[in-house]
């Protein structure tokens, strides 16, 4: 087998196809660049990463709670403190995520083929709401009793309650600690990859100096996406 044939065979292998696919997700050098376009200069840009940092704290505090078990925090002052960390990291996660959302809205950050980035961000928000909701259901206290018996009506009315029983504590524990956090991580992961793939949206009316006067080919209309 010649060297060229061998090379071609390697290129056809499943492994090299995966490597090509992964390396093509994000332009070369853009996974973790140490430079950003000059227009990235506002405090509004720090809220996405603040939400990510909060998510790390949500997961970390949640994992500590799993060590003690679901009712540990009722009887241990340390457990209650960890529960407080979990609650406040969730409050900050949502607050920073929503400010990030407001910021991205006023910048119309979906321009230039970034519609999917917005979409995955929106779904990260939705799945996060579901995850937080199930957390309220497994507190094993008055809140859980009240919230589950109230929420059942909304879910039952759509038929969802036939499979997703918010009063079934065992089912809700597993949703809260496994299925839904996995959903959040998948959506946030896709979102971050898309952000790195497309880069930070340029200002309205901007043209890169090198191409000034020449219509760029990779973008789309100012108002929407293609």
């Amino acid at each position: 087998m010649s060297a060229a044939e061998e090379q071609a065979g390697e290129n056809r292998s499943w492994s090299s196809a995966v490597v090509r696919w992964v390396s093509g997700l994000v332009p070369r050098g853009q996974w973790l660049p140490d430079r950003q376009p000059g227009y990235v200069a506002s405090w509004i840009y720090v809220f996405g990463v603040s939400a990510l940092a909060s998510l790390v704290l949500v997961i970390a505090s949640g994992l500590v709670l799993t060590v003690g078990g679901v009712t540990w925090w009722h009887t241990s002052s340390l457990g209650h403190f960890v529960n407080s960390l979990h609650l406040w990291s969730v409050e900050f996660f949502f607050a920073t995520m929503v400010i990030h959302l407001w910021g991205k809205f006023v910048m119309a950050s979906w321009r230039g083929g970034r519609g999917l980035t917005w979409l995955t961000g929106a779904f990260s928000f939705f799945v996060s709401i579901g995850t937080a909701f199930t957390g309220y259901l497994i507190q094993t206290n008055f809140d859980s009793q009240w919230i589950s018996t109230q929420a059942k009506d909304g879910l039952n009315s759509t038929g969802v309650g036939s499979q997703f029983n918010v009063m079934d504590f065992g089912q809700m524990v597993l949703y809260h600690v496994a299925l839904l956090p996995l959903g959040v991580l998948v959506m946030v992961g896709l979102h971050v990859v898309l952000v790195r793939r497309r880069g930070v949206v340029p200002p309205f009316g901007a043209e890169p100096p090198a191409e000034a006067g020449v219509e760029a080919v990779s973008g789309s209309s100012e108002g929407g996406v293609k």
Binding site: P27, Q36, P37, A41, G112, R198, V200, P202, P208, S218
Partner: peptide, 13 residues
């Protein structure tokens, strides 16, 4: 059109 962000001059970040 919205140009490709990777074509803009950069600063350290």
């Amino acid at each position: 059109v919205t140009p490709d962000s990777h074509a803009f001059p950069t600063r350290r970040y």
